[in-house]
Design a protein around this nucleic acid. Structure first.
Lengths: 253, 253
DNA sequence: GAGTGGTCTAGACCACCCA
DNA sequence: GGGTGGTCTAGACCACTCA
């Protein structure tokens, strides 16, 4: 039950208002997020109807609506007319397009297969610590992989994950990763990625990258650094991706 | 007056509904946009209050609210509690942060001064035609400029604008451009940029760019291509920016 | 204190999905 | 046909701004 601070409607009087409170729709929104984080509603589940939620939360339908609409805009929920409101499953299709994305020079979309080169738990680098907001001496699970189309490697990638949080996640080296990796985070470690920050710079191919991508050392590359955030706002992934041939495209709107 | 298709409330009967109509809040939203495009409300103006708009448009306040909230989320309006709702002026500060932006490697924001190298009207390149959606043989106004901080040029930029639309825009070559360029588009040509699509790739410095940026030919560069859209959804700017040292950062959220 | 936007409610009716 | 979300309204009260 969300806390009302003595609101009246239609001139019904009421005793003195206690503490100032956050708007009900924010309380409702946060409560829904918390319940999703806690696994009360899992990705793929349908929430109770708005009318039900309104009763449960002790607010009006309009307030529930405002909360769910905000979460839908944010990509966490999906409202389906006539069916209900679903906690968005991290289906491969959806998650690939929620962030900026790589495309071919001609604008064709990029549909890669990922190939794991190596995985290991190791001390976090200075960069990892900073971007994942980890304490000194923390360890990270590092995945090195390429992403290819038609057998041609186009992206070389290093992914660092907080080792503790992702202790249940591991792969066979050399294995093809058929599922979208955010789906795996969710399935094996219960981490749902909802947001990411990217930043992009120019870089020159190192020996290792040149080998993996089959280009020359020193070739101009795009380096995309991504920090991904979970439902709870924690930094859960630090990824660096290098590509020589692809472009990176914004999806504003 | 927006067109209602026979809506009733509180069981008040009414004759047969005519054609299916778009939701009133969309009609209201579009009408507001059209009025802003037509100059009825100029950037910096305050709209009439919600109550007034509701009367004028013949809908309820809630409907007006939904329309203006959408436009506010989109960045076209700014709601100010207790003051009113303002058509967002393209103030330098605001427009710089509405899109992806360049930052320094350490995350410091980049506050450049632009320096015009050359301007000329010329036949559009194949790329210009494609990205600006212009007819064959169209001409574009091309601006070449650098953007510097503390006298150090960090970005080299080529901006192509449809020559007809921007016939009133011109500068002295060699001049420093102190105002944000989108403010100039608005002031001199009545074009308000509301949205942009970026795409980013790696490139190597050409002779011209190397000279302008003081780097070596072949240095890995970030090339950002931006297509900017006006209020009416037309493509009004095709810009390519090259930088060796800066990063490009997303602002999702 | 008048006027504006911000929150919240209650209720009507519409449009869609599915059994 | 029952249930769900989508649109729209009317009205109460709150919180902020400015004269």
């Amino acid at each position: 039950m969300v806390t009302k601070s003595s609101r009246r409607t239609h001139s019904v009087p009421e005793p003195a208002p206690p503490l100032a409170s956050r708007p009900l729709y924010l309380q409702a929104r946060d409560r829904l997020v918390r319940e999703i984080v806690d696994g009360v509603w899992k990705p793929g589940d349908y929430l109770p109807s708005e009318a039900q939620l309104a009763v449960t939360f002790g607010v009006s339908i309009g307030t529930i609506r405002r909360a769910t609409e905000e979460l839908a805009a944010q990509g966490l929920l999906e409202r389906q007319h006539g069916r209900g409101t679903q906690v968005v499953p991290h289906s491969s299709d959806r998650s690939r397009f929620r962030f900026l994305r790589f495309v071919h020079p001609d604008g064709r979309s990029f549909r890669p297969v990922a190939h794991l080169i190596q995985q290991s738990v190791q001390p976090a680098t200075r960069e990892d610590l900073e971007h994942l907001d980890l304490p000194k001496n923390a360890e990270v699970l590092v995945l090195l992989r390429t992403r290819s189309e038609d057998g041609v490697p186009l992206i070389y990638e290093r992914i660092a994950l907080p080792a503790e949080r992702f202790s249940k996640l591991h792969f066979e080296a050399g294995q093809d990763m058929l599922e979208e990796i955010y789906v795996l985070y969710q399935k094996h470690s219960g981490e749902t990625v909802v947001r990411a920050e990217d930043d992009i710079r120019a870089d020159a191919a190192t020996r290792a990258i040149a080998t993996a991508l089959g280009c020359e050392v020193g070739t101009p590359l795009l380096m995309v650094r991504r920090v991904a955030f979970s439902l709870t706002g924690d930094r859960v992934e630090h990824r660096k991706s290098w590509t020589a041939t692809l472009r990176y495209r914004s999806l504003l709107d």
